[in-house]
């Protein structure tokens, strides 16, 4: 990984993507690039526009403004686009009265590449009854059926909206393992939205962070971790930030100021402690921007870097 995305072909590109529904703006001026072959975590607080972004990429929602490019096409009603993009919606919509087997058989007739044996094998492995109406399955089992269908399509881009929510920890790990395996075979890019940052971090090497309906971060995970620091300076002033350093979030107590900063190799004053910081802390730091001080999570973490 070089960290630069420009050298690689982008699987997903959005420039100034805005989507509004009547009076509410669900996504504002979103600009992202996800290179091919990555597993990209899409994170952000509730209502930050993750679902809207995924639906725009899947061609289900039409952008109000901006440009979307998915695998070199604008999302639309053409076979090439539809065949190459797989979308698993939140809450895993399935035809309740039909069985998993029915769903697989239907998918086989609606898609040019379809891995029937793979999908059946996956469900058998997870001991999910393929002959029962999916409405009678548990939420976790339905999610697995939805994931099996999304993968069976053999897409080039897989869009997953909160796929982990219904899964137990073991199933999550198994699923993410399968995902990583499929991506390693090449030709697949995954965008996966979730609140489970730590678990996503296990497989994802790219991250898009939406907050306040805007893109806050869009970069290689290693680059994100490498460019952020947690800085603690004594005293409540805390305005001694070197040039070129962006303060993402800060918390001041009478004793010290804690800041999440994005910086290169900037040097802070000697009395300040500089720690490296984990992905989850970085994400939370961005997500709690502008939140009331007692809701900012920054101060809760020590400098375990």
């Amino acid at each position: 990984m070089t960290g630069g995305s420009s050298a690689q072909t982008a699987a997903v590109e959005a420039v100034g993507l805005t989507k509004s529904f009547k009076s509410t703006v669900a996504l504002r001026d979103c600009t992202i690039t996800v290179p091919e072959g990555r597993i990209c975590a899409l994170v952000g607080p509730n209502g930050s526009g993750k679902t809207t972004l995924l639906r725009c990429l899947a061609g289900l929602a039409r952008p109000s403004a901006g440009v979307v490019n998915v695998l070199g096409h604008a999302p639309g009603q053409d076979h090439e686009f539809l065949a190459n993009v797989s979308f698993l919606a939140q809450d895993v919509p399935l035809w309740k009265r039909l069985t998993a087997k029915d769903h697989i058989a239907i998918g086989a007739r609606l898609n040019p590449r379809w891995d029937t044996t793979g999908a059946r094998h996956r469900l058998a492995q997870l001991e999910i009854p393929a002959d029962k109406p999916v409405g009678t399955l548990s939420g976790g089992q339905r999610a697995q059926v939805g994931l099996a269908l999304a993968l069976a399509k053999k897409p080039k881009l897989l869009l997953l909206d909160e796929p982990l929510a219904a899964l137990d920890p073991l199933a999550r790990r198994h699923f993410l393992g399968v995902l990583a395996e499929d991506v390693s075979e090449g030709g697949l890019t995954v965008l996966i939205s979730s609140h489970l940052i730590t678990e996503l971090h296990r497989v994802s090497d790219y991250l898009v962070l939406l907050a306040a309906s805007r893109t806050q971060l869009c970069a290689d995970v290693d680059d994100i971790i490498g460019s952020h620091r947690l800085v603690k300076c004594p005293g409540g002033g805390g305005e001694r930030v070197p040039a070129g350093v962006k303060v993402v979030n800060s918390f001041r107590s009478a004793r010290e100021t804690t800041m999440l900063v994005r910086a290169g190799a900037a040097s802070f004053e000697p009395e300040c402690e500089v720690h490296s910081v984990g992905l989850e802390e970085i994400v939370l730091g961005y997500m709690s921007q502008g939140a009331p001080a007692d809701l900012r999570l920054l101060h809760a973490q020590g400098g375990e870097g």
């Binding site: 639906r55 899947a58 061609g59 289900l60 009603q77 053409d78 076979h79 539809l82 065949a83 993009v85 797989s86 979308f87 919606a89 809450d91 919509p93 399935l94 035809w95 309740k96 998918g107 609606l110 898609n111 040019p112 269908l149 399509k153």
Partner: peptide, 16 residues
Amino acid sequence: EAGTQLLVWTQTVTRR
């Protein structure tokens, strides 16, 4: 109502 249009409209078949 069931949200299954999200499933079927993302298969390789146009809405039309």
